[in-house]
Design a binder for these strands. Structure first.
Length: 1079
RNA sequence: GAGGGAAUGCCGGAGCGGUCAAACGGGAUAGACUCAAGAUCUAUUGGCUUUCGCCUACGGGGGUUCGAAUCCUCCUUCCCUCACCA
């Protein structure tokens, strides 16, 4: 038999596709033709590949081929298809190669990319190569930096010191996702904890939208479930617990540890209770004073008293609550203008998202203007007796003549204005101006005038203090101590709280530990700290008593506060109320340490006896039941009680309904070289200063030292720069960005891949995006796919794009393993090389095989044996066309009804199958079709062409070749652009389908007659026929009666009035009614 | 513990209320071709039966229906993801 030169065919068509630019996508617009057949754009994208040194593996090939089938199918359907390709080329392996082998990451990357390209081109993928991007190129990462600056501007990028997962081998910070199971994702080294100042993206700002949008997305349920789980939204109640300990004056000294747990507190002390700064999440309080009032005094820095009237009082009180207060001395407003104040302010004060800003008089005016320009996020803004009437104070005019930015409210958690009923007219007007512009409330106090010295009551200013720290008035349990908030989803069990547990990693742990317990606690902590945070899952619950007690706001009971290893420090408040009777973890803990257990929800099914005996229960009852031991709430259903008790706590001022997320901010800092440099500089004078947009990109320096910490720290020339703000000595940020940054927005860059003026042309992105069909591995469900969703929302809020999600449809391909079902890996030596397979069996065979082995979302075990089947099929198709070529006499030959039916059925099924991503089923349909056609003596040219087109997305090379055969008898091609890849998809002729079904209908009556004749006899009284409901109308009872010579009655099988003593009706089948003969 | 998915003939795997003893592939058996092997082709591949047909079958139990591999319910087993998130 003649050998088919598949390699030659592949090369021929790949070259032609490239030469003709067959797959280059055109964005419509001025000058360019309207592409496609008017069906509009369709964007197919396979996930960004990292060009590793190992080259393409089968998983990649599977991923790409799936995307290619969709892209090619959509092209043939007449869509204007964008099917781009690029490389996520920044990343660790390149740097590891530098350390290991001494290759520069750039060289490593530059050798790998062409290798990838060669393999991808070899697969015959329909990529638009003209749009190729590589993230390691400054042309690309410039825009990563640009986005970073925008994040910074909007307060979404910030720095904080945080404990990070540190891999000592990679010398880098790992995201929690990359440090699962306690060891480094990349090298397997055990992860350590380290405190570092890190850059973060405030993804949590979008937590709610990221969560709730999932409901409307056409993404796999599994992925959405994983994201929901990851974001972890939970509704609950935040409840204040008053903590009493030795440092208070309540007299709880020297109590025993375990014997008196849960005893009633007798302490009662009426002094004011405030939560402290960290409990409230207050970073610092910044007070900007107003004008000192006396010209002479205030002009002299020595004598002027900027810090007076109520300011000392508030300062003292805040300090007592351990809140940092800053009261910068500002230049005299008589002389100075806004800019002078700003300079002074920026120099002296560190404002962050947890700051509370307080202004007085013209200080208010300054702060509002400052917020407008700095675009900072802060926790709270309090304006005391604000002033903004330009006419009234000529010298101060510089402060007042500006527009108030109405968006300040979006960046500031809360804004409050204090005014007084006896304030001057202009002052009252000013308050209203601010209120109307900022949309906040005015708190009007009595007889405070302008809140300056000399007016009554302004030296003590408790309203302000309350506003800053929002004290919880503990209705039933005032006492000395501090308020700690806890988060619970089970407020209905609050009467069953018998202890509290605070995380061993909590930053305020110290405050809870009394002297007597210190030794034990320290011993406990040293044991805990030796265990990596991520190893916690299988740990036995352990704890130690802190010595403090908490007052249950519902009952007034004092319960011990324990320190536990099972409480997560940075979720909720880092402390939990423990209800051992109704929570398995609390139960385990209580049992272990002999803490009392109090039941408050009755398990009605299993009959709880009301019994608070310490160790009666065998396990916690976490189900729904009726409340007991819960005071006025007894008898309520626990679901209902959740609401009722929450309301009650809120009313008492000790609770709030809150929503908590598991999602944490995205730490993007990496102490690594091969990533996007973070475009800021650190100036000793000005602090963190962003690099100007015009100076982007900040390029990676080529000459660095690898192997010892962050390579960028070795590039002194690069590090040392002038401060963009003051021109002084400054140093570049040496952290680079997480590479997930690069892949978070690349789908948009593809729409305008080589734009050097802006990140992309809005119109182009609007035309193509979002991605219509996104294909990639399920392993990205939680990282890439959440980050990318976040980026899209951010870019949308910047006004650059107008859609909410990166991809309309998402598809995860399955995993390909070796024959034994084991993961393929270099170290195991079981890798099947796509290039080898392609060379051995042909590209089309390889493609077809990949798709026919399993449903694309399932994956399979590679088997060389079974690829033979695919090869046989491709060869069969080839030979079918080759041999039919001879038979094509051009004599107007017409196909049989059956052939037409089969062909049209296939057109319909293949199209629908691709649309539904049932690609494996489609490969089977194609096999059936060509097996059938191969058995026919002759098939018309038209039908052959229709059938061939169905195969194009799967086996494009052979199809192009055969199309050429069909069209021009192999000799000439009709026109340059006569590619079957661009041919239009065959249309279904529904009328030709289903001949067999019709034939079935015709024979129905005959069949019944024949069968009755066989069984009927002289003594037959009557015959009953039971047919399928949809067939009853096709059966002609009278005709049959006539033919058979007996009375024949036809029933529907579902007719309840049928006469069927032997219940034979159940044997009826479509096309074959059941028959009962009555004797 | 939470969530997602799956269980079909020798194997992989279709199937989405009736044309289901169950697609397609692999394997196996027989036959054709060949000196022979390979490749290729053809047929068979749950049981009983010459055919019509009947019986037993889609993890297990129960149910809905005239009718269930397909729908509901409980159970068992397996895989995946997250996991002390209060």
């Amino acid at each position: 038999m003649e050998e088919i030169d598949f390699a030659g065919i592949e090369k021929k068509w790949q070259d032609r596709w490239a030469a003709e630019g067959v797959f280059e996508a055109k964005t419509p617009g001025a000058g360019s033709r309207e592409p496609g057949a008017g069906k509009g754009p369709y964007y197919v994208l396979e996930m960004f590949a990292y060009p590793s040194g190992e080259g393409l593996h089968m998983g990649h090939a599977f991923n790409f081929v799936i995307g290619d089938v969709i892209a090619r199918f959509k092209m043939m359907q007449g869509f204007n298809v964008l099917h781009p390709v690029g490389y996520d080329s920044l990343g660790l392996p390149a740097e590891n190669a530098a350390i290991k082998v001494g290759t520069h990451p750039a060289d490593y990357t530059n050798t790998n990319i062409p290798n990838f390209m060669k393999q991808q081109k070899g697969l015959g993928l329909s990529y638009d190569w003209s749009r190729m991007v590589s993230t390691a190129s400054p042309d690309y990462y410039k825009w990563d930096q640009w986005i970073f600056l925008k994040m910074l501007e909007k307060g979404l990028a910030y720095q904080k010191v945080s404990a990070v997962n540190w891999c000592s081998k990679c010398n880098t910070v790992l995201a929690n996702e990359q440090a699962q199971s306690g060891s480094c994702d990349l090298c397997g080294t055990k992860v350590e904890m380290k405190q570092l100042k890190q850059w973060f993206f405030r993804i949590t700002d979008y937590a709610d939208e990221l969560y709730s949008n999932l409901d409307n997305m056409n993404w796999p349920e599994k992925t959405k479930a994983m994201q929901r789980n990851w974001i972890g939204k939970s509704h609950g109640t935040e409840i204040d617990f008053l903590i009493e300990n030795q440092s208070g004056v309540s007299g709880f000294r020297g109590f025993g540890v375990s014997d008196e747990l849960g005893g009633k507190g007798e302490g009662e002390n009426g002094s004011r209770i405030h939560a402290d700064s960290r409990g409230l999440g207050i970073g610092n309080v910044v007070i900007v004073h107003g004008c000192p009032g006396d010209e002479e005094k205030s002009l002299n820095p020595e004598t002027r008293t900027y810090d007076k009237h109520w300011i000392p009082w508030i300062r003292k009180n805040l300090k007592e609550s351990e809140i940092a207060v800053e009261v910068p001395m500002m230049p005299v407003p008589w002389k100075a203008r806004y800019d002078d104040w700003k300079k002074e302010f920026d120099k002296k004060v560190d404002v962050n998202e947890n700051s509370v800003l307080i202004g007085h008089s013209c200080g208010c005016s300054f702060l509002v203007r400052w917020l407008r320009e700095a675009k900072k996020k802060v926790k709270k803004l309090i304006l005391v007796a604000p002033w903004k009437i330009a006419e009234s104070g000529g010298a101060e005019k510089g402060f007042y003549d500006y527009e108030i930015d109405k968006d300040i409210g979006k960046r500031v958690g809360n804004i409050v204005i204090f005014s007084s009923d006896d304030e001057e007219e202009d002052g009252k007007k000013s308050a209203v101006i601010f209120r109307d512009a900022l949309g906040c409330k005015i708190v009007e106090l009595k007889e405070h005038g302008h809140f300056t010295q000399g007016d009554m009551g302004t030296e003590e200013f408790p309203e302000l203090l309350d506003e800053i720290i929002e004290p919880r008035t503990l209705a039933d349990s005032r006492g000395q101590g501090k308020v700690w908030k806890i988060f619970t989803t089970r407020p209905d069990t609050i009467f069953g709280v018998t202890f509290m547990v605070v995380s061993a990693q909590h930053s305020r742990l110290d405050e809870l530990v009394i002297e007597e317990q210190r030794g034990k606690v320290e011993k406990f902590l040293s044991r805990i700290n030796s265990v990596s945070e991520k190893d916690v899952s299988n740990l036995e619950k352990e704890g130690v008593f802190s010595g403090s007690y908490a007052v249950n706001p519902a009952t007034g009971e004092r319960v011990p506060v324990w320190i536990g290893n099972f409480v997560v420090a940075d979720y909720g408040a880092g402390m939990v109320m423990a209800v051992p009777a109704h929570d398995a973890r609390d139960f385990e803990f209580a049992k272990k340490y002999g803490i009392s257990i109090k039941e408050v929800v009755a398990d009605e099914e299993n009959g709880t006896q009301i019994n608070t005996d310490k160790h009666r229960l065998d396990e916690a009852f976490t189900g729904v039941g009726k409340l007991i031991n819960s005071g006025e709430f007894d008898g309520l259903d626990s679901v209902e009680a959740k609401e009722k008790i929450s309301d009650w706590l809120i009313e008492k001022g000790v609770g709030r309904r809150v929503v908590n997320f598991k999602l944490r901010d995205w730490g993007i800092s990496r102490q690594r070289y091969w990533g996007t440099p973070i475009p800021v500089v650190h100036c000793s004078e000005c602090g963190v200063v962003p690099v100007a947009e015009k100076d982007l990109p900040v390029r990676l320096p080529k000459e660095v030292k690898f192997g010892e910490g962050n390579p960028l720290e070795s590039a002194e020339d690069w590090l040392n720069v002038k401060c963009p703000k003051c021109g002084g000595e400054a140093r570049r940020e040496s952290d680079t960005m997480d590479t997930f940054v690069n892949s978070s927005w690349y789908m948009m860059r593809f729409c305008d891949a080589h734009n050097d003026k802006e990140i992309f042309d809005k119109a182009k992105v609007k035309y193509w995006c979002p991605v219509d069909f996104y294909v990639g591995g399920a392993e990205h469900a939680c990282m890439h796919l959440i980050y990318s969703r976040f980026y899209v929302k951010f870019l949308r809020d910047l006004g650059l794009i107008d859609f909410d999600e990166p991809a309309v449809r998402l598809f995860h391909q399955g995993m390909i393993n070796d024959e034994k079902g084991e993961k393929m890996s270099k170290s195991k030596g079981n890798v099947v090389e796509p290039l080898e397979t392609m060379a051995k069996y042909g590209v089309d065979t390889t493609r077809y095989f990949l798709l026919s082995m399993a449903a694309p979302d399932k994956g399979f075990n590679w088997s060389d044996k079974e690829i033979a089947g695919s090869q046989r099929f491709v060869r069969k198709v080839y030979e079918f066309f080759a041999s039919n070529e001879v038979k094509d006499m051009g004599d107007g030959f017409e196909d049989s009804a059956e052939v037409l039916s089969r062909v049209n059925l296939a057109i319909r099924d293949v199209g629908e199958g691709i649309e539904k991503m049932e690609l494996r089923a489609v490969t089977i349909k194609l096999k059936e079709l060509f097996n059938f056609l191969g058995k026919q003596d002759r098939v018309s040219k038209e039908s052959r062409e229709k059938a061939l087109k169905l195969l194009v997305p799967f086996c494009p090379h052979v199809c192009e070749e055969l199309f050429e055969v069909l069209r021009g008898n192999r000799k000439q091609v009709i026109g340059n652009r006569d590619f079957v890849s661009l041919a239009s998809w065959s249309k279904v002729d529904e009328s030709k389908i289903g001949v067999r079904r019709k034939e079935l209908g015709v024979s129905l009556n005959e069949g019944v007659i024949e069968r009755i004749k066989k069984v009927v006899s002289d003594n037959t009284e009557a015959v009953y026929v039971y047919a399928m409901p949809f067939e009853v109308s096709k059966i002609d009872g009278s005709k049959i009666s006539e033919e058979v010579g007996k009375k024949v009655t036809v029933f529907s099988v579902s007719n309840s009035e049928k006469i069927d003593p032997e219940n034979v009706a159940k044997r009826a089948k479509p096309g074959k009614p059941a028959i009962y003969v009555c004797k």
